[in-house]
Structures are given as structure tokens and as C-alpha cells.
Amino acid sequence: MDIDDHEITISVNGVRYQRRVESRMLLSDFLRHDLGLAGTHVGCEHGVCGACTVLLDGQPVRSCLMFAVQAEKHEISTVEGVAGGDGEYHPLQQAMHDHHGLQCGYCTPGILMTMTAFLEENRSPSEEEVREALSGNLCRCTGYQNIVDAVMAAAKRMRG
């Protein structure tokens, strides 16, 4: 079978990219291999672990459950764009650091993408709401408690 490929234009962290992609190229692989944005991690590749979570037009989605060709003309945000332009940590990154919300760090990019989007929508979450929002991101190191603490602390700081 001939390779079925398509020209796409997508924006990642505000930068426009034009590339030719094969139809079967997953968005996660496109980000990592074609754009060199390896901060998006690949865990299970069937939508369970959440490591590959990115934002599609501001909403968290699994990048392993989308084809790159589908991202044509959409805005993607990845962990590389979470910190400020001057390298200053996002309040959640700082809180994850302060509260020891990561150990091996493999799940962390996905958790940052999921929870920064969550905090944009809900600045005063209950712990239960945080746990519910976190339910789609697996972490095998921390036992989650420190992540929950970090999100609660970040929410407080973002409320000002």
C-alpha cells in the first residue's frame, strides 16, 4: 500500500508548524519525533495512563488517541509551554516541586497538563474534585497524596 500522507499546519505552544505526516502517525509520536518535543511522555498507548495528555484547544486529551492529521488547524499545548516565557515555573510546577509531587517524573507532564487545565476552570476545588480530575493519570511512585497537596496549594496561590 502506498503511504497515505497529508500536509498539516498545527500550532504547538503558539508556534506554527507545517509538516507532512502519514495518516497513522499518532499525535504523541508526531510531537516527540517530528517536532522533537519529547516532554510529552508515552506510557500505555491505549488511553489509560494519561502520561501523553496534551491540551487540544485548551482541553486535556490523550495524544495517543488522536492522529496527528486530526490536529490540523488546532492549537496544541504541551508541557514545554507550561512555564512562563522567562522560564518561571507555573504555580502548579512550583507546588509540585515544593510538595514533592513527583519521584521518577514519568507521569508528571501528563499530570501538569491535566491539572493546569483543571485549575483554569476551577480555582477553588475540593480535594475530592482534585482526585476526580486526577483519576485519568496514573502515578506509580507518589501514592498521589503529594500531588493532591500540590494542586490544592497551587489553587490557593492562583486565587491570590
Binding site: L56, P60, R62, T114, E132, G136
Partner: peptide, 12 residues
């Protein structure tokens, strides 16, 4: 609806 998978899946 909240029982259906996770928020990331429900966005899509």
C-alpha cells in the same frame, strides 16, 4: 456521564 472513563477521554 462522570462514570464514563476520565475527563481527558470525555473531552474527545
Amino acid at each position: 456521564l462522570p462514570h464514563i472513563a476520565h475527563p481527558q477521554i470525555r473531552n474527545r
